[in-house]
Each structure stands twice: as C-alpha cells, then as structure tokens.
C-alpha cells in the first residue's frame, strides 16, 4: 500500500488557483520532495494532507485512509511539522516534547530510539524555552516533537527555511537516517540544491506540478545545452544576453550566467566582444535541477 496517494487535487482561494490538478504517490520508505518557490502551493498541499484544510476537488489518502472521512485516525498516525514554528515558545525544550508525547498517549522514553540522534543534539538546551533557541535548534526540536509518537508518515513543510547552511546539512542527514527506519517522508523546500537529496521530487510552480521524477533522471533528461558565461560587467552582460535574439534563457547562477541559446557560442562571443565586454569566459556547464526548473518555469509562463 502506498503511504501517500494524491489524486487530482484542486484548491481555489478566491480567484487564485492554489493547487491545480495535483497527483502523485509516495512509496513506502521514500523521501519525496516538493520543490518550488514561495507561493507554489506546497503548504496548501501539506495542510490538505494533514487534514487541516479541505480540497475543493480530488482525493487524498494517507496510509490508505481518506483525509476527509478518516481525519481522526490520520491525526494519530502522522507527524506534521508546519512551515511556521508552531511549538510553545514559553515552554522549555523538554516540556514541549513531554507535552506532545503525552497527548499522543505515549512517553518520550517509549520512542526514544527514534528521536535519540536528534534529541541528543538539543539535549544541552533542554531547560531553555523553545522561543529562545536558534533557528536550526527550533527545527530539530520541531522534528523531535513530530516524531515523538512514532508516526508512520512524516510531513515536513519547509523544515530548512531560515536555517543556516550547516544546520541545513545536519537536518538532511537526519532525514536520511529516518529514511533508513523506513518512514516515508514528504518534505518541501524552496532550495533547489536540496532536491538532489530526495529520492524523488515534484517540481511545483503556481499550484501545478511541472515534473515528477528522481533528481538524476530529471537532470539527465534535460537535453538543452547549458553554457556558463561571465565577463567583467555582469549586469550589462545579463541585459545584452537577454536582448540577444538567439538566447532563449539567461539566469544568474553563482558567479556565472547560465544561458541556453540556439546560436553557436563563438558567434555570441564575437557579438559580445564587439559590444565591449572584456574578460569574457564561455564554457559548457552541466545542467542542475535549478536549470531544469528555470526552463520548465519559463515554458509554463509562456504557455499561460
């Protein structure tokens, strides 16, 4: 049985279509990522799956239970970490964990195996109010609280947003370890680099899923050649390239611009040199998830 099944979900907020025909499934023990910018509809989808919001149309099942009919049973079985920190800021680390354990009718001790790795990292601060923790610590505590009742499915809504790079990496390491315990995890993130850490990802934009696959397949299927270009005047370079008739897309990517074009790169080089650019470097680049995302996003925007 697939732990998470989403079938043709639609959700409208006034005139805004927050979710448009969303379908996917998450396999047992899979780490599934929803990748997309703010406003893509990721949190809305989480709230529907966590039984907090009703979809307008479509069906969703968690552990074979319907999110509308069997919401009560689902609430016992899932661990949910909302996008906004939602623990009691005036209670200490220990008290928060204790509270969430008790309302699930269990104890910290009973499921300590599951949270040990994570809890040990925040244990030195266990008497500190949750509101006084750093961003990374807060997320670790929230993950502990979501795990303390031994959920059979985990929903993590942007767990690494607003967290420093080191803590982000630690957080993903923890997710990998949880995966080994065979808990299916649905996680969302606006960071493209985190997409490669998932088993499969769904690229989301404007309430619709643009592509679902493993990160490596997504990248390898991307046939368009990417060129990395830089010069001494990056700002003018972006403008000139975007104005160039044969350039299809041009986005900043670290110190380079990632460019797709129909013309020969040497042709572009000569036109840029005559345009007065110095220190020009043009080299082929490997496409990343971000390049795929940008190109899909551009295609979607043009279609609309």
């Amino acid at each position: 049985m697939e732990p998470i099944v989403v079938q043709n979900i639609f959700k409208q907020f006034g005139n805004v279509s927050a979710l448009h025909d969303i379908s996917f499934t998450v396999a047992p023990g899979e780490l599934f990522g929803l990748i997309g910018p703010d406003g893509a509809g990721k949190s809305t989808l989480f709230r529907i799956l966590a039984t907090l919001l009703l979809a307008d149309k479509g069906k969703a099942m968690v552990n074979g239970l319907d999110v509308v009919k069997d919401y009560r049973a689902i609430r016992r079985q899932v661990g949910y970490m909302p996008g906004k920190f939602s623990l009691y800021q005036d209670l200490t680390v220990e008290e928060n964990l204790h509270f969430f354990a008790t309302i699930f009718n269990t104890t910290i001790k009973e499921n300590y195996d599951l949270i040990r790795d994570i809890y040990e990292q925040i244990a030195p601060f266990k008497t500190r109010p949750a509101g006084k923790l750093s961003g990374g610590m807060k997320q670790k505590l929230a993950l502990c609280c979501a795990l303390v009742h031994k959920p059979s499915v985990l929903f993590l809504d942007e767990p690494t947003t607003g967290v420093d790079p080191v803590s982000r990496k630690e957080f993903w390491d923890m997710l990998q370890r949880l995966k080994e315990k065979n808990i299916p995890i649905l996680v969302s993130t606006p960071y493209m680099d985190e997409a490669t850490l998932c088993d499969r990802v769904a690229l989301m934009q404007n309430g619709a899923i643009m592509q679902i696959d493993t990160p490596s397949t997504i990248v390898s299927q991307f046939r368009t050649k990417i060129w990395a270009i830089k010069s001494n005047d990056m700002y003018r370079l972006i403008r000139d390239l975007r104005a160039h008739p044969e350039v299809q897309s041009c986005f900043a990517f670290g110190e380079f611009l990632h460019v797709t074009m129909t013309a020969d790169p040497e042709e572009v080089r000569s036109s840029l040199t005559t345009g007065g650019h110095t220190g020009l470097v043009i080299q082929p680049a490997n496409a990343g998830i971000e390049d795929v995302f940008m190109s899909l996003m551009q295609a979607q925007t043009q279609a609309v």
Partner: peptide, 13 residues
C-alpha cells in the same frame, strides 16, 4: 496567533 493550533490540530486532541 502563535500558530500553535496548527500543530495541535494534527494530534488526537
């Protein structure tokens, strides 16, 4: 206001 109800609602409470 603090958003804690969001977390509480996904519990058996």
């Amino acid at each position: 206001e603090m958003g804690t109800i969001e977390q509480l609602n996904v519990t058996p409470i």
